[in-house]
Simulated scan of single mutants.
Amino acid sequence: MPAVSRSRPVALLTGAGRERGIAAGVARKLAAEGWDVAFSYWRGYEDRMPWGRDAADPATALGDRLRELGARALALEADLTDPEVPARLFDAAERELGPVQALVMLHCESVGSDLLGTSVESFDRHFAVNARATWLLVREFGLRFDGPADRGRIVAFTSDHTVGNLPYGASKGALDRIVQAAAKEFAGRGITANVVNPGPVDTGWMSESQRADVTRWTPLGRLGTPEDAAHLVAFLLSAEGGWINGQLLYSNGGL
């Protein structure tokens, strides 16, 4: 492998398919904070969702924005239902940018259905993406991380929305336990692992009535933004955030 400059640490980030999404906001913040960023996205998921895909390819739109902020950027289209994909993401990030120091997971499968209406196919897809892919990414990071000492970081995003959204909420519960296990099992490798629950964030999926309800229910009287989540991730990835480990953090304005 050719020598790669390590003047900027490298973060691997998943789920950056939409400009308005949390992952894109986190990627921009990390780039501005001095990170190089490899990010994955999957337009096949966006195509199945009501909002559809962005007109601009994330590889171009987000990648160019990260480079404007001073980062090297690598875009990787990846279907995380394939168990071979997590290792390939790390291979590509290491080859193009260098060893990965932080893993930030915002990918998800989220198609609402209740206890009686959930199909086996939907249940299995949610667990393949939200739980199995998370485990495989975490495992890959644990196998590959080689320092600097005490600077390895894992952050995953979760949700407690389970009622009427059974496969999503149940698979996110599994994600929580996987990441919290890494906080203990990887401690000797110099890696912290935390889970963030951002609450409802205004990324374009809310109806006007939902926006009004969430604003009313939040003590601070506004909707959450991707930038709110990005500030927390940047802190957790910093040296100053290194004492926070094994936590499920609610960053939701007190909802």
Rank of each mutant, 00 (worst) to 15 (best):
T60D: 14
A71S: 13
Q101P: 08
E96M: 02
R6E: 13
V104Y: 09
D82I: 10
G15A: 09
T60Y: 10
D54L: 05
A23R: 02
E121S: 12
A102R: 01
G117E: 14
A23L: 05
L66N: 02
R18D: 06
T14W: 05
S113H: 09
D79P: 05
T14Q: 02
V120M: 12
V37Y: 00
D36H: 06
R53S: 15
A31H: 04
E33I: 06
E121W: 08
E19M: 11
A73G: 01
A27T: 00
T60F: 13
R53Q: 14
S119Q: 07
V4F: 12
V85E: 06
R43H: 09
L13Q: 01
R67W: 11
D64K: 11
V26Q: 04
A78V: 11
D91M: 07
M49E: 14
D114L: 11
D91N: 06
H107M: 08
W35M: 05
P50S: 06
A71R: 01
L62H: 00
L103H: 03
D79Y: 08
L69A: 15
V111K: 08
G112V: 13
S113V: 05
L106K: 05
R18Y: 10
P9Y: 11
D114P: 09
E96K: 00
E46N: 13
E84H: 13
L116T: 12
T14S: 05
E33V: 10
A23K: 00
Y45C: 03
A32Y: 07
W35C: 02
A73W: 02
E84W: 07
A32G: 11
G52E: 11
G63V: 04
A55P: 02
V26E: 04
